[in-house]
Amino acid sequence: MSARKLPGPAQSFRLVTLAFGALLMVTPFLYMLSTSFKGQQYVLKLPPQFIPDPATLSNYERILLRGDFGHYFANSLIVAVVSTTLAVLLSAMMAYGFARYRFPGRELMFRLLLIGLMIPAMMLIVPQFVLAKFFGVLDSLVGLIIFYVAGNLALNTFLLRGFFEALPGELDQAMQIDGAGHWRRFWNLALPLARPALATATIFTFLATWDEFAWALTIITTPENQTLPIAVALLQGPKGTQWGLVFAASIIAILPVIAVFLTFQRHFVQGLTAGSVKG
């Protein structure tokens, strides 16, 4: 049965509504991009100018020539890449175990894991700080990575379990007949077929770890261990803020997120709906 076409006025209204919503969402980003090319004296000019006149690269030059900015960028990149890799791999292993194996307490353990999704992250700051102090990982990138990985396991496992459950069991049985063990079936069969769900988990995890501010601000005290969100926040002074400088740094900070999304966006929509329909 062919899809029913919307009448002309209804379709036009839908397109106009979608266009208005898209413009509403992208306007703050466009204004931030525009402001990053303005001198400080033009930032608060009324009415606001979306096309800077005169345009300048001085904000980007000042940011890129700061010796510490590249160091903060590298810290964030290391933390985000390592945290994302470990979180996605560990959650994939957990999700595969919950989806493919039957063992006592399986559903109870899965529901206990999902409790982590119901607790606001700010409520965990104090107990996390106590644990970090006990293990001696305060003021270190390791302390960030450990808790970023732990904080993303629940959501990633939830997403990936649905996808693994939707994979035909006959594929596992065929590999078992060929003599494949548990690890080989997971690594050579499940992971390649789960690329859409893995891409979704990768995007969510990288975004969460790259932009995280509260935990990093809590445990990082020395400048050499600071990450990019803290560095951008420190550009805002108590007596005045160079908004052009802040927005230029923010634009640079957005680039890795855009790169990750463009890399995995082919599988993103498919991964979001993976496991929602079984059969």
Score class of each variant (00 low, 15 high):
residue 139 D to I: 05
residue 111 R to G: 03
residue 92 A to F: 10
residue 144 L to S: 12
residue 125 I to R: 00
residue 173 Q to D: 13
residue 109 M to Q: 04
residue 98 F to P: 02
residue 168 P to V: 11
residue 105 G to A: 10
residue 193 L to C: 03
residue 155 L to M: 05
residue 91 S to A: 11
residue 167 L to S: 03
residue 189 L to Q: 11
residue 192 P to G: 06
residue 197 A to K: 13
residue 126 V to N: 10
residue 179 G to A: 03
residue 97 G to M: 08
residue 181 G to D: 05
residue 159 L to G: 00
residue 91 S to M: 04
residue 156 N to E: 03
residue 196 P to K: 09
residue 170 E to T: 06
residue 121 A to Q: 15
residue 136 G to T: 09
residue 174 A to T: 08
residue 190 A to S: 15
residue 190 A to T: 13
residue 104 P to E: 14
residue 135 F to N: 03
residue 114 L to E: 10
residue 169 G to C: 10
residue 104 P to R: 13
residue 100 R to Q: 14
residue 190 A to W: 13
residue 103 F to P: 12
residue 132 A to T: 00
residue 156 N to K: 05
residue 195 R to S: 10
residue 106 R to I: 04
residue 122 M to D: 11
residue 197 A to L: 14
residue 176 Q to G: 15
residue 162 G to T: 07
residue 192 P to A: 10
residue 159 L to Q: 01
residue 190 A to G: 14
residue 98 F to Y: 09
residue 167 L to V: 15
residue 114 L to D: 06
residue 90 L to P: 02
residue 102 R to T: 13
residue 194 A to P: 02
residue 117 L to I: 02
residue 174 A to I: 05
residue 141 L to M: 07
residue 178 D to I: 07
residue 187 W to A: 12
residue 131 L to T: 12
residue 120 P to M: 08
residue 177 I to P: 07
residue 126 V to Q: 10
residue 137 V to K: 05
residue 134 F to N: 15
residue 108 L to R: 14
residue 94 M to C: 15
residue 174 A to R: 11
residue 182 H to V: 05
residue 161 R to G: 00
residue 173 Q to W: 03
residue 163 F to R: 09
residue 173 Q to T: 06
residue 142 V to I: 15
residue 94 M to F: 14
residue 110 F to L: 08
residue 177 I to Y: 04
